[in-house]
């Protein structure tokens, strides 16, 4: 590896990690809004999102520059591809954070709907998944990454239950459809945070092992069907 390449990769790594810590801060703040909504905070979170967008563009440009100038191969190429993809995922998580904060404020306008404990729990789990996915990236630990992927199912279950409850509530009290829609949307957004965490974890598996496990179940099923 040339000096230039190694220095550029180090810089990319650093920018990505500082982006990840900022996004994690944002999503934590957004989730806290669910318990304690605050309109000003929500505006602040939305503003933070702009800085994340800039970082995303910066990382992508740097990645393309490294690719063009050094034409890396093997693990370096995988690293750059992974950094590019993780930065995209983080950018979307930041968008979701801004969105969740807005939903929380929307919910605050109708205090007759309490935030279900399950939603808080789900938010906590999803944010924890994101943290562990980044941990796996830092430690290049594909086992940890696989665990994150496996945890996604329980988040999906929780989301389904919450949405069922919300729909039942809508039938019961149609007058509260608007705040219930906020709740519905918040739950969906949190579920998407877990999805992005899973994507990051899958990128980490690719970085470490060189295999793409995304859509793994589909592929395996299709292959089985084709061979039979």
């Amino acid at each position: 590896m040339t000096m230039h390449l190694s220095r550029d990769l180090q810089k990319l790594h650093r920018t990505l990690l500082s982006m990840s810590s900022r996004v994690e801060d944002m999503i934590h703040q957004a989730v806290n809004q669910l318990g304690d909504p605050n309109f000003e905070e929500a505006v602040k979170i939305a503003k933070l999102d702009d800085a994340i967008d800039e970082l995303d563009v910066e990382i992508e440009e740097d990645c393309l520059k490294v690719l063009a100038l050094n034409q890396p191969v093997g693990v370096d190429l995988r690293r750059i591809a992974t950094v590019m993809k993780i930065s995209g995922e983080l950018e979307r998580v930041a968008d979701i954070a801004a969105n969740i904060a807005q939903r929380a404020c929307g919910l605050a306008e109708s205090p007759e709907i309490p935030i279900p404990d399950r939603l808080q729990e789900m938010a906590h789990d999803a944010v924890d998944m994101l943290h562990r996915a980044i941990d796996a990236y830092v430690d290049l630990d594909s086992v940890k990454a696989m665990q994150v992927c496996a945890d996604d199912d329980s988040i999906d279950d929780m989301n389904r239950q919450i949405i069922e409850d919300v729909i039942a509530d809508m039938h019961r009290t149609p007058s509260l459809v608007e705040p219930l829609l906020h709740l519905f949307s918040a739950s969906r957004q949190i579920e998407r945070v877990a999805d992005h965490a899973t994507n990051i974890a899958e990128d980490v598996v690719y970085l470490v092992e060189g295999t793409i496990i995304r859509h793994g179940r589909h592929f395996v099923q299709n292959q089985v069907e084709r061979s039979s």
């Binding site: 790594h13 650093r14 990690l17 500082s18 990840s20 810590s21 900022r22 801060d25 980044i134 830092v138």
Partner: peptide, 11 residues
């Protein structure tokens, strides 16, 4: 430290 701690304010 930015790899180990990952907190923007500490960094």
């Amino acid at each position: 430290i930015w790899e180990v701690v990952r907190s923007s304010s500490i960094e």
